[in-house]
Write a protein that binds this DNA or RNA. Sequence first.
DNA 1: CGTCCCTTCAAG
DNA 2: CTTGAAGGGACG
Length: 169
Amino acid sequence: MSSAETPHAETVSPLPSSVDLLVQDSPDSSTSPKMKLPPTSAEERMGRKEDTAQGKKQIRTVFSQTQLYVLNDRFQRQKYLSPQLMQELSNILNLSYKQVKTWFQNQRMKCKRWQKNHWPKESKSVTQNSTAATEYPAFYSYHQGHLMNTSANLPIWSNQTSNNLNWSN
DNA sequence: CGTCCCTTCAAG
DNA sequence: CTTGAAGGGACG
């Protein structure tokens, strides 16, 4: 046990259909002939420290494209989400609240970082070096047609655009 | 409690 | 070497 994440257990989510979203991507370029990502999207296999070594070691969780897409989309419009929003997001994406919170935090830092490395260039050549090309905000770059037709599935943000702002704890 | 920030530590 | 999720401390 010992999961410190949401005490309410994962519960499989009360939403039956929200589990599968747009699982699809893949241009599969690069060296990966077959990417396993069948039914359940999400390849989050983590938190497994069993076997050898009881000393907790960190495990780099790698989120799936589906999860990243939703998270990114939200981040673009809102840097700060209310705790409730995060929780809903987490259960939709099948992540923990803590993970979502941490993810947002990391994105904010990343954002600040590129600003510091890009904007304050003081009008001087942009071509600094080949290296240091650090990623740019390559946000919405996936997808080619439509998506998010889940208006009927996700009652979360698909409601009115921006509605209340709950700042109360 | 959450956020900021650095740092750790694992994968590419 | 870089990316990126977490751990932990500091601050409100």
